[in-house]
């Protein structure tokens, strides 16, 4: 019963193997849990969720074309507003990095206040190339944060989004340590882990994430991964796609086009 409803995955990889071999201890747990009343009217009849929405029919992903990003920071700003992210410069669900690759071989990266208020002028001499890169939770299909959460307070939904349960998180911060992308932080007020939700509350209403909504250059593209035609499928077809830190096998669902090798 534990593995039911996980998003379908391609061949039999390590996770599948684990998932298939886990039922032994999990059945024991399930036995312990047997006899629990199954009906839970409150969660079922939530008015805010359109009855038509079926999580298992969706599989969301984001595309980012770095060659379109102008570093205006509107996405980071919108994200903070939409999700009540603390305004201090230590908490970001998404942020912009500026890369300046110099002729002396050094690469200078910066993200003052996540890029929300723009970037200071850069010294124009001695630049080989320079560009902006938006960052956010990669919504990994093989998420290390979910793996390490001791209590099941962070998880992958059926529509492929990694979420955090604010009511259940114990605040151990192991997930923050396990995230290779620095996408998580501890909320200073709730004392629970936080990160990008792909604006899950917008998705189920048929809206796109706030950062995608306000990106003026369409550097961010959002959609269903397996739709026959959508801006995202077009994006995936027309670009050479890379993900961040592929050697860690996290299988990100944030896909980058025109990504420079300096980006980590």
């Amino acid at each position: 019963m534990e593995s039911a409803g996980e998003p379908e995955a391609g061949g039999l990889d390590r996770r599948d193997f684990l998932r298939k071999s886990l039922p032994v201890p999990l059945t024991l747990l399930a036995l312990l849990r047997a006899g629990e009343p199954e009906a839970e009217k409150k969660a079922e009849g939530d008015a805010s969720k359109p009855p038509a929405y079926k999580a298992s029919e969706h599989n969301y992903a984001m595309g980012i074309d770095t060659s379109r990003c102008i570093g205006c920071g509107r996405c980071a700003e919108a994200c903070k507003a939409e999700n009540d992210v603390p305004r201090e410069p230590f908490y970001f669900r998404t942020w912009i990095e500026r890369y300046v690759v110099q002729t002396n071989g050094e690469t200078v990266v910066s993200s003052p206040n996540g890029g929300i208020a723009g970037f200071p002028p850069v010294n124009e001499t001695g630049i080989v190339r320079t560009f902006f890169v938006p960052k956010l939770c990669n919504q990994c299909a093989n998420p290390p944060c979910v793996q390490v959460c001791p209590v099941g307070a962070t998880f992958t939904t059926q529509d492929g989004v990694v979420l955090v349960d604010q009511e259940y998180c114990i605040g151990c911060r192991y997930c923050i340590q396990a995230c290779p992308y620095g996408a998580r932080f501890l909320h200073p007020v709730t004392h629970t882990a936080e990160k990008c939700t792909f604006c899950y509350h917008r998705l189920i209403k048929g809206l796109v994430p706030a950062c995608v909504e306000v990106c003026p250059t369409q550097a961010r593209i959002f959609g269903e991964l397996k739709a026959r035609s959508s801006p995202l499928t077009r994006f995936m077809r027309l670009h050479e796609i890379q993900v961040l830190k592929p050697h860690l096998n996290t299988e990100p669902r944030v896909y980058y086009a025109n990504l420079d090798g300096e980006v980590r």
């Binding site: 969660a43 939530d46 962070t154 259940y168």
Partner: peptide, 18 residues
């Protein structure tokens, strides 16, 4: 799955700003 199903609803119920 190994999580509170009610958490998904709680997150889905958050108010949109945009």
């Amino acid at each position: 799955g190994h999580y509170r199903a009610a958490a998904v609803d709680a997150i889905a119920a958050r108010k949109i700003k945009y």
